[in-house]
Design a protein around this nucleic acid. Structure first.
Lengths: 292, 292
DNA sequence: CCATATATCTGACTTAAGTCAGATAAATAG
DNA sequence: CTATTTATCTGACTTAAGTCAGATATATGG
């Protein structure tokens, strides 16, 4: 990463900050402080309970209570108890509040429009495309890997998605029980990693012991909407580095012919096809990589 | 421009706002309110006079005075009168101020680095490229066209750059006096347009009367660092629309063989090669367009 | 039922950020 | 030299934004 790349990112941040500040300014044009405006906008046409508002915008509970109070006072918001949990309170927009919400929505739309309008169609498409690219790659950069227990809710949720997907993709469906790694029955993995994007699990991968000097990679999965961000690559790298740290000399893995992206990844990462080394009924190809 | 494009721009704004907010947070980590931190950072290693600070950040003069006062009090900034204009005051960083400036600079660098670091080199390049594209296109969208007097300082500055460039590009140099449009001596243009990017003139173009039913486009120029943003196209469109409004049926223009981008633009915009219609010694090609 | 946790509210604060009306001193136009 | 403009400063304000320590009422696990 050279200094010039960094300078570009900094310039980008600066120029965007200024521009986005302009959106805030336009919000102020409705004579309401930014905090209240944002809150009103976040409550939205469907309403919202205060707890989730607090989580989303990150406000002190006392402060939030007062801000909502002001909106109620101005006749923009109604506040009732949540029927399911008497401690919680739900905020919903009144008719006047909904009008205001629409006005803010219009401002945001108008702002976006003002970025696109002066451009010819070709440049417009390029801008939208570049924005999407920036967004995706910035998301990719904010992925975090965390070791978790394979028994944790998060791990189980990932595995369920993994199984669900294989069921759909494999010609004969998939039954997780038949694809256990060998060794002592239901041997736990040495490391189970979760990939998180803004706190939500969007991928997983596990490293198992195979024999005294080898490990096995299994349960590699990435949520469909986050593919192409290099998450699988990072999971694989992290698992390999753990394997090296544990003194393993060799890594094994198997895969199904329908998982073409996975096979591409393995081959790019230095895995080479070998003969069948297990009796996994879902495996079509077997790979190994010597750890240097 | 469809609703989906707008939704993309809005999502982009939202996700970037959050991320850029994180940079502000990191600035706060040095125990100084954001206003002071930004001011210190803007003063920079070379110092700066208060007037230009005010223009750049847009602060109330009283407020700025007090903010700088605080920085002086904390031993971070020195304040002296400008030797050239006794009303102005120059702020310069003390040794301690410079250390602080470096710390903020490091934070910005670190922030940029944290966006790039988790990515593999290919994705890193894609991110930097996409950021540059967004920046350029957003700049393109914020270009504004203004009619000005051809005698104004801005117009003269543009024309000077235009002449300077032609001198360099034409095989036999360029003398503006020899390339006057025909008609009553030094006839003023019907419309002289300036293209502005963030207040600075980065391009120009003029529409002259040629005869009772035709106009002539001349003095089309775009600053080198802003080429590729579609500025010339927008200037040309605006001049044509003025010509239509004035009842002109036909537009003429001439150009030199070395101005290849210009020729491409004219041809894409519907201009067709015609025979020589004037005695401009620098012209190699002549074009016309019928206004529909 | 009890202890504890959770969601919200209230009161009493602090601080940042900014506005506005002059005052002051230096530059500039005539 | 005088009137006006310009750049900055000072004093007196306002408002937004946020923090913190309880108080209160409701859920939840045992």
């Amino acid at each position: 990463m050279d200094q010039e790349d960094i300078a570009h990112v900094r310039r980008f941040n600066r120029s965007l900050t200024r521009r986005i500040g302009a959106l805030d300014e336009s919000y102020l044009g409705r004579g309401r402080p930014l905090g209240q405006a944002r809150l009103l906008f976040e409550i939205g046409p469907d309403g919202c309970d205060l707890k989730s508002l607090r989580d989303r915008i990150g406000l002190d509970s006392g402060y939030l209570s007062r801000l909502v109070g002001l909106l109620v006072e101005h006749g923009l918001v109604d506040l009732d108890s949540d029927p399911e949990d008497g401690r919680r309170r739900r905020a919903t927009l009144t008719a006047a509040g909904l009008d205001e919400w629409r006005a803010y929505d219009e401002l945001s739309d108008g702002f976006a429009r003002s970025l696109l309008a002066p451009l010819d169609p070709a440049r417009r498409q390029r801008l939208v495309g570049a924005m999407r690219e920036v967004e995706r790659l910035v998301a990719a950069a904010s992925i975090e890997l965390d070791p978790v227990s394979p028994e944790s809710t998060e791990a189980k949720a990932c595995l369920a998605s993994y199984v669900g997907e294989l069921e759909g993709r494999f010609e004969n469906g998939f039954d997780a029980a038949k694809s256990r790694p060998r060794g002592p029955a239901s041997q736990p993995p040495r490391l189970f990693l979760i990939a998180r994007l803004e706190g939500r699990a969007v991928g997983c991968g596990a490293l198992y012991d195979f024999d005294a000097s080898a490990g096995e990679i299994k349960r590699m999965w990435v949520a469909p909407h986050t593919r192409g961000l290099g998450i699988a690559r990072r999971l694989l790298d992290a698992l390999e580095s753990e394997a090296r740290g544990a003194g393993m000399k060799r890594l094994l893995l198997d895969t199904n012919r329908s998982l073409t992206e996975a096979m591409t990844l393995y081959e790019k990462s230095g895995y080479r096809r070998i003969a069948r080394y297990n009796d996994n009924p879902y495996a079509d190809f077997w790979y190994e990589k010597m750890l240097g």
